[in-house]
Every structure is written in C-alpha cells, then in structure tokens.
Design a binder for these strands. Structure first.
Length: 143
DNA sequence: ATTTGAAGACGTCAGATCGA
DNA sequence: TCGATCTGACGTCTTCAAAT
C-alpha cells in the first residue's frame, strides 16, 4: 500500500496489472475501485502518478500517465480512462439510485399519512353531518 | 427440514431533464 | 452542446412466512 497523501488515498498492487485504489469520501466512508496500472517488479507504480483533480469528489484521486508515446499506449491509456470514468459513473449512479429510492419511500410514507389524516377528517365530517341532520329533523318535528 | 413464492433491497443501464 | 443528476425498468439476491 502506498499513501498519496491527498484525502487518505492508498493503492494496493494487484497481480494482473491493476491496482485497488482506496479513497475517503467527504463523509469519511471508505470506497475502493480497481484501476489498471503498470507496476515494476519492486512494486512501484511506473506509468502513473497520483494526483487529485478538482472535478473529482473530495478525497478522490485519479491516476494519470507519464511518458506514454506510442499509439498503442495512447489507445490503452484512453481505454483505461474510459474504464475509470465508467467506474466513477457506476459508483455515482449507485449512490443516486439509493437516494432516489429513499426519497420515493419517504414520499409514499407521506402520502399514506395524508390518506390516514383525510380519512379521519372524512369520518368526523360524516358524524357531524349526521348529528346536524338529526338535530334538524328533531326541530322540524316539534314545530 | 426443505421447498417455494412474495416482497423488498440493490446494482446497473438507458433515457429524460436541467444548468453552465 | 455537454456533463451531471434523476428515475424507470430490469435482473439478481436475500429474507421470511407458508406449504409440503
């Protein structure tokens, strides 16, 4: 594990040319993503350096390449970028879906509460109408 | 104890919407 | 126009009660 210093980020080397990047979110929770990198036999990250772009959420860092020249490397690099972007999208989407479901549940709960209140009001009004009718009938009978 | 079906939670993708 | 966000739809997994 190496610590990049920005937002408590750590990276663990994986066997198949990937690394697991651990990052801390704004709320302090830990998240993990796998990122393809080239690792030297000594376990050092060779083709990437760690930096923290402003477009990422607080605590998230992204690996960027250094010294890439050939078209093949460029293609690999864009594929890696695409993969990283998709991973980020998936993560955000996951969170958004959770939040969406939470809001939906809350909304349904609110509606149910409103239905209960309105049903109670309806009952009360029916009772009131009933007693007023009785009162009216009684009055007309005595006249 | 095992099986089965319903209900709920979750992750993912695609499309809609909105603000810069 | 483009990126970010929201949400509906779909498939999968888990849990739990009822049936066998």
């Amino acid at each position: 594990m190496t610590n990049a210093g920005q937002g408590a980020v750590t990276a663990a080397a994986m066997p198949a040319g990937t690394t697991i990047v651990q990052y801390t979110q704004g709320d302090g929770s830990q998240q993990f993503v796998t990122v393809p990198v080239s690792i030297s036999p000594a376990g050092e990250v060779q083709a990437y350096q760690i930096r923290a772009p402003s477009s990422l959420p607080a605590g998230v860092v992204m690996a960027t390449p250094t010294g890439i020249t050939s078209p093949q490397q460029l293609a690999e690099e864009s594929a890696r970028k695409r993969e990283l972007r998709l991973m980020k999208n998936r993560y955000k989407n996951r969170e958004a879906a959770r939040e969406c479901r939470r809001r939906k549940k809350e909304y349904v709960k609110c509606l149910e509460t409103r239905v209960a209140v309105l049903e109670q009001q309806n009952k009360t009004l029916i009772e009131e109408l009933k007693s007023l009718k009785e009162l009216y009938c009684h009055k007309t009978e005595t006249e």
